[in-house]
Amino acid sequence: MTTTKAKDPLEGVTLETLLTELVANFGWKHLAKEVPVRCFMFDSTIKSSLKFLRQTPWARTKVESIYRAWKLEPPKGKVLFPS
C-alpha cells in the first residue's frame, strides 16, 4: 500500500528565498499585518528581517506558516491577506 504525501513547501527553501518571495508577492505592509514586528513595519529590508527571524522562533514559525498556506494554494475565494 502506497500513501501519497504532499511535499512540504519549505523543503529545500532557504529563509531568505521564502521571505523574498513573500515580499515580492504580498509586500511588507501585508506581512506586517500578519506578523506585527518592527522589521516588517518600519524601514523594512530583507537583511534586517532575516536577522530578526533567525533570532525569534515564534515570528519565523508564523512567516513559515504563511508561506506554506500560500504555496499549498488555498481554496478559491479564500484570501490570505485581506486588504
Rank of each mutant, 00 (worst) to 15 (best):
E16C: 01
T3E: 14
K51M: 02
F40H: 03
D8V: 00
L53Q: 11
A69E: 10
L10N: 14
W70A: 07
K71M: 13
V37H: 10
I46N: 06
K76P: 11
V23S: 01
P36H: 10
F52A: 10
P9R: 04
S65P: 03
P82K: 13
K33L: 13
V37E: 13
K78I: 15
A32Q: 07
V23K: 03
N25G: 10
W58R: 14
E16M: 05
L19W: 03
L18V: 09
F42W: 09
R60Y: 06
L10K: 11
F40E: 04
L50G: 09
Y67M: 01
T2D: 14
T61I: 13
I66F: 03
V13S: 02
T3S: 15
T3H: 14
E16I: 08
C39W: 00
L53S: 08
P75L: 10
K5R: 09
K29N: 12
A59D: 13
L10R: 11
F52R: 14
P75C: 05
K5A: 08
L22G: 04
W28L: 06
T20G: 02
H30I: 11
F52L: 11
P82Q: 06
V63T: 04
K47Y: 00
R68C: 10
M1W: 08
E34A: 15
G77C: 02
E34M: 09
M41F: 04
F52H: 15
K47M: 05
C39P: 04
L15P: 11
F52I: 00
P74N: 04
S65G: 05
L18H: 05
V63W: 02
A59N: 14
A32Y: 09
L15N: 12
L10E: 08
G12E: 02
S48C: 00
F26E: 13
E11I: 01
V79L: 09
F81I: 11
S49C: 07
V35S: 02
S83I: 11
S49P: 00
T2H: 14
G12D: 00
E16T: 13
T61E: 15
K33F: 12
A32T: 03
D8K: 06
L53K: 12
F81D: 01
H30M: 12
W28A: 10
S65H: 07
L15D: 15
W70L: 03
H30N: 15
L15W: 02
R38W: 00
A6P: 09
R60V: 01
T17C: 01
D43M: 07
P36G: 11
W70D: 06
C39I: 09
I46W: 01
G77I: 03
K62E: 10
P75E: 07
T4V: 15
K47C: 03
F40K: 03
W58A: 14
S48T: 10
R68W: 03
L15R: 11
T56A: 04
V23R: 06
V79E: 10
